[in-house]
Design a protein around this nucleic acid. Structure first.
Length: 468
RNA sequence: GUGGUUUUAGCUCAGUUGGUUAGAGCGCCUGAUUGUGGUUCAGGAGGUCGUGGGUUCGAGCCCCAUAUUCCACCCCA
């Protein structure tokens, strides 16, 4: 067989040791916060039935689903129907050859899980989930075809205290990671109210999609886009009169209220936003939460509050987190009237921000090893073994260089073993030659400083623990 | 799905209007240093120029197809 050049599917990546350590650092940070707020872990399969996934993310989302070809002869049905003839386009149905797809997000599988386990779970049900998802997008900055989401959701509770907790989770996690962020909040009911005041409830999503781009294309761009959608100048003036309100959160709400007072739904949305702001005041949290009536978010299932987080520094402009409340996500799976609210962290984008701004802790290393035992021959290597075990028993990650260099190459020992420690970023070497073996000690060297000293194994353990 | 862009040594990139033997920096290997990495010095290895076709006396360079990278739109973590 001809040699083939290996490659990865578009938009996927390998992660080497250093990258995995950094990714785990982010995951651990977020997971710790999730647990602290009472969330329990959940994992769901990589693939779901297409019937579970399709229709949940809008037309765009359906296009981005990775579909899995049925195993066996996927085309069997079609062939039989057509007597092995070539199938015409009109006869071709994807559902005939594919009934499974890769997870597109974590919220829908979660909803599916809740419905399937409704009798076994205790409500309100709080779960977190950190797993990869797949989207058949074109890759670009901050956009991958395989990426991780870290979700925390609560279902079975209408209380806005859940929103309050989720806001605090964002704040705590991003603070711990050292990321400057802006958390924007809006409410779909407010958007509905705005749509009603401007024109009618039917145009909510049209307006939402357009004004969500306000930051990017400016007022002129949004006006132009909506004009093309058939909005009159008066309607657009009404719209911008509302969404250009600026100021402190509470003032914004007070100003908005009279403008959409004719819509019951809009007022309800304002009420919810007010209550959340009030809660934040009660706990005296110094959280930068910014109300933004132009925030829309794409996912079609949000019905209440919506959140979006962007990093304030660095070149990544897209969101590193998002979420919101959905009143009836489980309804489509046969469990109506269960309200949920959740947030998501975009691991890969958070990684990109931390990497660009050099915010990863410097002590993160590819190798966890703290001490490498170096030696001259089989006898000195043997001498290292009990010391190696002692170090490990003391909880210190340690290795002995596994190969023995033959006498005639003794000059190469220096290179090979110390090169290894240096290349892996191992902070200490413990060297044993014949003299050291005779005296029951090691030459312990810090590769960072170059300082070297004679140590017994007990002294080495103490030294190491002091330097940590 | 639409538009643009990238691909040359392990990595980052030069490469003139198409013209002998395709270069640099870093990394790697060897030695200076027969008990020590990272610094310094000397030397060395390493490339079917993404892939497949085509044009040409001649292609890294031009044309077509395809894959891939990155970027923007749509949409989104």
């Amino acid at each position: 067989m001809a040699i083939q050049k290996p490659s990865l599917p578009k938009g996927t990546r390998d992660f080497g040791a250093a990258e995995v350590q950094k990714r785990k650092y982010i995951l651990n940070t977020i997971e710790t916060v999730f647990k602290k707020y009472g969330f329990m872990p959940l994992e769901t399969p990589t693939m779901e039935n297409l019937s579970t996934l399709e229709g949940k993310y809008g037309d765009e989302g359906d296009k981005l689903l990775f579909r899995i070809l049925n195993s066996g002869d996927a085309f069997k049905d079609i062939k039989e129907k057509n007597g092995e003839q070539k199938v015409s386009d009109t006869d071709f149905r994807i559902s005939a050859i594919s009934e499974k797809g890769l997870r597109y997000d974590l919220t829908v599988p979660f909803a599916r899980y809740v419905v399937m386990n409704r009798n076994n779970i205790t409500f309100p049900f709080k779960r977190y989930q950190m797993q990869p998802v797949w989207r058949a997008d074109r890759p670009q900055k901050g956009r991958y075809r395989e990426f991780w989401q870290c979700d925390a959701d609560v279902v079975g509770s209408d209380s806005l205290l859940n929103e309050l907790d989720l806001i605090q989770i964002y704040d705590e996690a991003f603070n711990q990671l050292g990321i400057g962020y802006e958390l924007r909040m809006n409410n779909r009911k407010v958007l509905a109210g705005i749509a009603q005041v401007v024109k009618s409830i039917d145009v909510m999503s049209t307006i939402a999609v357009a004004i969500d781009k306000l930051d990017k294309i400016g007022e002129e761009g949004v006006r132009k886009e909506l004009q093309e959608q058939g909005f009159s100048a008066d309607e657009l003036n009404t719209l911008f009169d509302i969404i250009s309100i600026r100021g402190e959160n509470e003032q914004i709400l007070q100003q908005l209220k009279p403008k959409i007072k004719t819509t019951e739904e809009g007022l309800k949305g304002i009420e919810e936003l007010e209550l959340i702001c009030q809660h934040l005041k009660t706990i005296n949290a110094s959280i930068r939460l910014k109300l933004d009536f132009s925030l829309a978010r794409g996912l079609s299932y949000y019905t209440g509050c919506i959140f979006e987080v962007v990093a304030t520094e660095g070149t990544l402009k897209s969101s590193i987190g998002g979420g919101g409340r959905y009143d009836n996500l489980t309804g489509i799976f046969g469990l109506p009237n269960v309200s949920g609210v959740g947030i998501s962290f975009g691991l890969d984008r958070i990684y990109d921000v931390l990497d660009e701004l050099k915010l990863f802790p410097p002590q993160l290393r590819a190798s966890s090893t703290g001490v490498l035992f170096c030696h001259l021959d089989a006898a000195t290597q043997q001498y290292c073994l009990p010391a190696l075990k002692q170090l490990r028993d003391a909880g210190i990650a340690a290795e002995v260089y596994p190969d023995v260099v033959v006498k005639k190459d003794i000059g190469k020992i220096k290179g090979v073993q110390f090169d290894y420690a240096s290349a892996l970023g191992i902070p200490f070497t413990a060297f044993a030659g014949e003299q050291e073996m005779a005296q029951g000690v090691f030459q312990v060297k810090s590769l960072a400083t170059g300082a070297q000293q004679v140590c017994t194994i007990e002294q080495l353990i103490t030294l190491y623990q002091q330097q940590q």
